[in-house]
């Protein structure tokens, strides 16, 4: 079965002052698949997600989402494209003056005309899916980092988006909490079949979820291949990345379960 690219970055360049962060990024995100973007710190991985979300416009190049160039879209068109997105930000970006329940209910209240009883049903279902029932009335400041991420994920999934973006979903979490997030991700993706784009440092664990691994190196996508190909590659840049990030740990970890 041939795969369809839902997002395409074509020769995307972006500079901040004298520093060129993206030097001509080319990347295709395939429908229904999980693409993990890896690379060293400060290479501009989050910038790629911000470009796809339309939060940052490229200096040159195209960012096509379902064939539409998001970098040239007007406000209304941008909103229509984003209606199919779900985003889990690095710090979850929950609304700190709203309760957990209201945070998850917000997209439903603002984007649909569902009655409150129906909204409650959907929110409760999503909170149960994330194993966070019973914390509905708490504020983001009153819950742990792992719970905040799960609330963020519940909010991102509440409108059943076609594409989900995860910016460092496990940064700042311990191993148990990270595994919890991965389990939730795996479960929801199996159920909802969404396309996922993940920016992560959590190598090699994140490879278990990935269909494709894209390596950002020196402002360019050096490769976008399957995790197996990535691990076995003889390419010196990939080898260097694999050895630096995984070392000996990788060979033992790859056999284990999450």
């Amino acid at each position: 079965m041939s795969e369809k690219a839902v997002v395409q970055l074509i020769d995307v360049k972006k500079s901040y002052g004298p520093q060129q962060v993206l030097k001509g990024v080319n990347l295709s995100i395939m429908e229904g698949k999980t693409t993990v973007i890896v690379g060293g710190s400060g290479q501009g991985k989050s910038q790629i997600i911000k470009h796809i979300l339309g939060l940052v416009r490229p200096d040159s190049g195209k960012v096509l989402v379902y064939g539409k160039d998001i970098s040239r879209a007007g406000k209304r068109e941008l909103r229509a494209i984003r209606a199919g997105f779900g985003v889990l930000f690095q710090n979850a970006a929950l609304f700190d003056s709203m309760t957990v329940y209201d945070n998850v209910a917000l997209p439903l209240r603002e984007r649909t005309r569902l009655p409150e009883a129906e909204i409650k049903k959907i929110v409760d279902r999503n909170l149960a899916l994330m194993d966070i029932t019973g914390s509905d009335d708490k504020y983001p400041a009153q819950i742990s980092g792992g719970m905040r991420k799960r609330v963020g994920l519940a909010r991102a999934l509440v409108l059943e988006p076609r594409i989900i973006f995860f910016d460092e979903p496990t940064t700042g979490l311990d191993v148990a909490k990270s595994n919890e997030i991965y389990r939730v991700f795996f479960r929801t993706q199996t159920q909802l079949k969404y396309t996922a784009v993940i920016v992560s440092h959590d190598v090699p664990k994140i490879f278990k979820l990935a269909d494709y691994v894209a390596l950002l190196h020196n402002g360019l996508i050096h490769s976008c291949i399957t995790p197996e190909e990535f691990q076995l590659s003889d390419d010196p840049v990939i080898r260097e990345f694999v050895e630096t990030t995984m070392g000996q740990l990788y060979s033992s970890e790859m056999e284990g379960e999450l």
């Binding site: 979300l53 997105f85 930000f89 970006a93 609304f95 917000l106």
Partner: peptide
């Protein structure tokens, strides 16, 4: 300002909710 620096405004935009309206 706090909503902006904690990415809450970005989150609204990504949820296709107009921050100006909301």
């Amino acid at each position: 300002g706090i909503m902006r620096i904690s990415e809450q405004i970005d989150a609204l935009e990504c949820m296709a909710i107009d921050p100006h309206k909301y």
